[in-house]
Design a protein around this nucleic acid. Structure first.
Length: 300
DNA sequence: AACCAGGACACAA
DNA sequence: TTGTGTCATGGT
């Protein structure tokens, strides 16, 4: 692997690695509504990836990582962060229109992660009509109550893995509702049960055509086109999946349809034809652009 | 204090 | 096919 491993672990951490990167905005990437477990702590970000506690820090042209236990390989993290993906060819594949140029300029270095499919699916089942901050709270509660504890550096607060499907399947709807997820509880429970029963093969989705993989996910109760596309884009690697939520719909209407009202179906057709082979990436730029723009300009 | 949030679904017209 | 009410909860 192309990472330079450093001999000096930080105080309390057992292992440390670093990768040279260019055009990687770690903060925007970890905080752009793809993943829900990252916490900004001081200058870094702490989270749990693949059952391992991790602290990430962005340095100029570098991303540094620390873990609580020694690592024989860092592939699991390099893959999650998509370290080796070059952004320039992706951005060059976008249509050369003014809206997308603005979005790319405003979100330079924003990346798509490659998440664990079950965690991603479960998280987005919980996401419907919820603000990102609240999704984080629900996911955190779920992990604290039903996730396996993971090793943390001395002096750090306890951390927990995302609960397995089998663990959630063994519980009850009432227990899930107690995590404040409301009407999404039966959806999550049923999905966990189907996975635990081997009735749905998330890992196998990557080898299938997009439409088939999407249809397979949409067989789950509570999973429609939008949530299915989030899982396909953020966890399975389908670059053309294009989740349209309220923010992306707003961005498309305002930037490409002169703010007019547009039928949801029409937005989908447009999204499938306009953005090219990395449409999903374009979607993430539009999403982040529209969200950060709004919060910046809403000053009286 | 209304309004809205990375929706989906059953049902109506 | 497209529109409306419902679901649960908390941030802004």
């Amino acid at each position: 692997m192309a990472s330079a491993e450093l001999p000096r672990p930080a105080p309390g951490a057992a292992a440390r690695a670093a990768w040279p990167v260019s055009d990687y905005d770690l903060a925007a990437t970890l905080d752009s509504g793809q993943a829900f477990r990252w916490q900004r702590v001081g200058a870094g970000w702490e989270g749990v990836v693949a059952g391992r506690w991790v602290r990430l820090t962005a340095a100029p042209e570098r991303i540094e990582a620390e873990t609580a236990v020694p690592q024989t390989s860092w592939d699991w993290l390099a893959d999650y962060l998509q370290i080796r993906v070059e952004l320039a060819p992706i951005q060059a594949s976008f249509p050369d229109d003014a809206p997308l140029r603005s979005a790319v300029a405003a979100c330079r270095g924003l990346r798509l992660l490659r998440q664990e499919p079950w965690e991603c699916l479960a998280s987005f089942i919980l996401s419907s009509t919820k603000q990102i901050v609240h999704i984080r709270q629900i996911v955190e509660t779920l992990c604290q109550r039903y996730g396996e504890p993971v090793a943390v550096p001395a002096g750090q607060a306890a951390a927990f893995a995302f609960p397995t499907a089998a663990r959630l399947a063994a519980g009850t709807e009432a227990e899930l509702r107690a995590c404040r997820m409301g009407f999404r509880a039966p959806y999550l429970l049923a999905a966990a049960q189907r996975l635990a029963a081997g009735d749905l093969d998330l890992a196998g989705l990557a080898g299938r055509p997009l439409a088939e993989a999407r249809a397979e996910l949409m067989r789950l109760d509570g999973v429609g086109r939008k949530i299915a596309d989030c899982v396909l884009l953020f966890a399975v690697g389908f670059q053309q999946a294009f989740p349209v939520d309220v923010w992306v719909a707003k961005a498309l209407r305002e930037l490409y349809f002169r703010g007019r009202r547009v039928a949801p179906r029409k937005l989908l057709v447009f999204s499938e034809s306009h953005f090219g082979p990395h449409a999903g990436y374009a979607q993430q730029y539009l999403f982040h652009y529209r969200r950060t723009q709004a919060t910046r300009t809403v000053r009286p």
